[in-house]
């Protein structure tokens, strides 16, 4: 029972970390049609910048707040200077572009920080474990769960209840309509792309103490995040949430109970869901 509960917690932690990545990926895709292969790079960049901030300030919290900022700026620059010029072209061009960028980021990170694996230490105030349900749970992991759920709730409120959210939804339904009804689409796209990147960068910092910080972590997290949005349905926030938890928990339990077969588990889940629902659990078929 103990193992089960703690695995469930770990699954939730991993799932919510994936959600921080997948939600941005999914909204960006829904709005711009960009499969952002550099999204993992934003995660990685955030983690490394966080690492440096911690070493200067000694505070994890500063890292959490500051690291997403340069990531968002880099993303905004990419959208304005490069992606924007490709919206009218074949979607594949944008994917190829972000693919190229992911190489640049990898090199940048190896140049700045080297090829070693670093560990970002968790904040001192969350180093203890809490005891409940007959087991000890690391405070930091519990904090991630709370943080992840809070971000999910905020995102949901933002998308469903605010004017900006209404604009994003209108944009996801039809960018041309959104342009027609007078929304400032270019600004909306830049903002969404940069915010998604900032969220990914923040996820990098949050995940630092758990996954480690190294060049290559980008692909490591990008692939499961892709699987999440393929499963959840592209452009759907709800899909990203459900998909993240599903993959997070399935992967964690797989590793605990069937270590040999675990790596196939999430792929198998993806294949089964795709065959039953080609557009994912919450995705809409493009007509």
């Amino acid at each position: 029972m103990d193992l089960f509960v703690s695995q469930l917690l770990n699954g939730l932690v991993y799932g919510l970390l994936l959600f921080l990545l997948a939600s941005g990926l999914s909204l960006i895709f829904g709005l711009m049609g960009v499969v952002n292969l550099a999204h993992g790079s934003f995660f990685m960049l955030g983690a490394f910048i966080g690492l440096s901030v911690v070493s200067y300030t000694g505070s994890f919290w500063w890292a959490l707040v500051l690291a997403p900022i340069p990531v968002a700026i880099a993303a905004a620059a990419i959208e304005i200077l490069l992606l924007r010029h490709l919206y009218k072209r074949d979607k594949v061009d944008m994917v190829l572009l972000t693919f190229g960028l992911s190489f640049v980021f990898t090199d940048l990170v190896e140049w700045g920080w080297g090829k070693d694996t670093f560990s970002l230490s968790e904040p001192a105030s969350l180093e203890e474990s809490l005891e409940f349900l007959g087991g000890y749970f690391p405070q930091y992991r519990l904090a991630i769960v709370v943080f992840g759920l809070a971000v999910a709730l905020l995102l949901w409120l933002l998308i469903e209840k605010t004017r900006i959210g209404a604009m994003v939804r209108a944009g996801i339904d039809d960018t041309r309509t959104a342009m027609g009804i007078g929304l400032n689409v270019p600004l909306l796209l830049t903002t969404t792309f940069a915010s998604g990147a900032a969220l990914a960068g923040m996820a990098g910092v949050v995940a630092g103490p758990i996954l480690g910080v190294y060049s290559g972590v980008d692909v490591e997290v990008l692939i499961p995040a892709f699987i999440v949005i393929v499963i959840g349905g592209m452009g759907s926030l709800k899909g990203a949430f459900v998909g993240s938890l599903l993959i997070g928990i399935a992967d964690t339990f797989g590793k605990a109970y069937m270590p040999e077969a675990s790596m196939f588990l999430i792929y198998a889940a993806m294949i089964v869901i795709l065959l039953a629902r080609p557009h994912g659990l919450f995705g809409q078929a493009a007509s």
Partner: peptide, 11 residues
């Protein structure tokens, strides 16, 4: 910086 150059050529 071979990798960065690959990326830039790609872009």
């Amino acid at each position: 910086h071979w990798l960065a150059i690959v990326g830039i050529i790609f872009v």
